[in-house]
């Protein structure tokens, strides 16, 4: 059960450390740049050479959440003192706030569609994977291949048929339509990943539970599910990341009520010049839910919950 490896030498450790740091920098750089840009003023954002040190401003965030219009000096004069801190930021650019932007709605759409389709993919995937793993399913291998084959071309290749189908069914620009679409795309991944995880759970656990007086469903619920938690968590993360970031279908199939954040963010560019800080702010906020979700589920990703309970 225990194994020994030779302790790496000091030089090896140093080399590994440097490698990790370099890799981390490379990965974090774009992210850090986006986060930083969100706090710059538009002129700082496009300054050349790029500004690494700058005076932080919330202008990007204010612009992200508001729609503004340019006002004449006279109008501004008549308005009197700005009422709020964000009013004053906008006034500095000779603008007034005329209302909220649609970012909030789009963001909420992303949450509903992203988490909705993730839940559905994982739920259906777990049940299907359990059946494939434990029961005699006729043509099991062919079915599994068939399920995987839906991933053998880029999903966007079927965009036109889906568009036409959705139009006929009235699913265009609806939450349900997007949830179903993302679930359909994610389900094959979910079934395959989860089948792998469930295959690894020894069937003896369920048999023990069956003998201990549980029904098949109780055995699944009380014994298999807790042990599949690792697999379910990582599958959920993969599904969410796909559904959350998906752009092409979102552009094609949503425009109003069900539009998600990815197609919305670029439209910010067009409103009142190239407002990069607002785009960066939108992207930064958009990153947060997936990040939080991943961090929350991270402890389940650590394998070894089942380690040692069954000797192999």
């Amino acid at each position: 059960m225990s194994f020994s490896v030779t302790e790496p030498s000091g030089r090896q450790k140093l080399f590994a450390g440097v490698l990790v740091v370099v890799y981390a920098l490379v990965t974090i750089m774009p992210l850090a740049w986006i986060i930083a840009t969100g706090f710059k003023t538009p002129s700082d954002a496009i300054a050349y050479p790029p500004k690494v040190v700058f005076e932080p401003s919330l202008e990007g965030y204010v612009n992200l959440f508001t729609t503004r219009t340019r006002a004449s000096a006279e109008t501004l004069e008549n308005l009197g003192e700005p009422q709020t801190w964000y009013d004053s930021i906008v006034r500095e650019n000779d603008m007034v706030i005329v209302g909220p932007s649609r970012y909030g709605e789009r963001f909420l759409n992303s949450v509903i569609i992203g988490f909705g389709s993730t839940f559905l993919s994982v739920f259906l995937g777990t049940i299907a994977a359990y059946a494939f793993s434990r029961f005699k399913v006729p043509l099991k291998d062919d079915l599994m291949f068939f399920i995987l084959s839906t991933r053998m071309m880029p999903p966007i290749a079927v965009a036109i048929p889906i568009f036409l189908m959705y139009r006929e069914l009235g699913l265009n620009d609806t939450h349900l339509g997007m949830i179903l679409l993302y679930t359909a795309v994610n389900l094959s991944l979910s079934v395959w990943l989860l089948k792998g995880f469930i295959d690894e759970i020894p069937v003896e656990y369920e048999e023990a539970a069956l003998i201990d007086g549980y029904t098949r469903f109780q055995a699944f619920y009380k014994v298999v599910l807790p042990q599949a938690a690792t697999g379910i968590a990582s599958t959920a993360i993969f599904c969410l990341i796909f559904a959350w970031n998906e752009y092409a279908f979102a552009v094609l199939l949503t425009s109003g009520t069900a539009q998600t954040a990815p197609p919305f963010i670029p439209t910010i560019i067009g409103v009142g010049g190239q407002d990069w800080p607002a785009v960066a702010a939108g992207a930064t906020l958009f990153l947060l839910p997936v990040m939080v979700f991943t961090i929350l589920l991270r402890k389940h990703l650590l394998r070894g919950i089942t380690f040692g309970a069954v000797r192999k």
């Binding site: 656990y205 048999e207 023990a208 069956l210 007086g213 029904t215 919950i305 040692g308 069954v310």
Partner: peptide, 19 residues
């Protein structure tokens, strides 16, 4: 069903619920 037979089973791998 196994649960209706009122017997207990000890598995080679013990099959203790690990969670």
């Amino acid at each position: 069903r196994a649960s209706e037979r009122d017997i207990a089973f000890v598995f080679q791998m013990f099959a203790l619920y690990p969670h």
